[in-house]
Computed example of a mutant assay.
Amino acid sequence: MTEYKEKVRYRFGWITGTALVLSGCAAGPDYRAPAPAALGVPAAYSQGASAPLDEAELAAWWTRLDDPALSGLIDRAIAHNLDIVQAQARLRQARESLRQARAAFLPQANGSASGGRNYSSRDAGGRLDPSGNPIGGGGSNWSSSYSVGANASWQVDLFGELSRSAEAARADLAASGYDLANVRATIVSELVANYVQARLAQGQLRIARETQAIQQDNYNIANWRLQAGLVSSLDAEQARAQLAQTNATVPQLEASLRGSLNRIAVLTGQAPGEATRSLETPAPIP
Results as ranks from 00 to 15, higher is better:
P68E: 03
A94G: 09
Q108K: 01
L70V: 07
I84K: 04
P107T: 00
L70C: 08
R95A: 14
A89R: 14
P68H: 02
A87W: 13
A51D: 09
L65C: 05
I84C: 02
A87I: 11
T63G: 03
A101I: 04
A51Q: 09
A69E: 04
L53G: 12
W62K: 02
Q47D: 13
Q86C: 06
Q108M: 01
G72S: 12
R99P: 03
A94D: 11
A87Q: 11
F105I: 02
Q93H: 08
G72N: 06
S71M: 02
N110E: 07
S50I: 02
W61E: 03
A94P: 09
I78M: 11
N81K: 10
S71E: 04
Q100F: 10
S97M: 10
N81R: 12
L91A: 13
A77P: 05
D54M: 06
D75C: 01
I78A: 10
R99G: 15
L98N: 14
A59H: 04
G48D: 09
E57P: 00
N110S: 07
R95K: 10
Q93T: 15
Q88D: 10
N81W: 10
L73H: 13
W62R: 00
E96R: 13
L106N: 01
R95F: 07
A60K: 08
A87D: 13
N81F: 12
A69S: 10
D75F: 06
A69C: 05
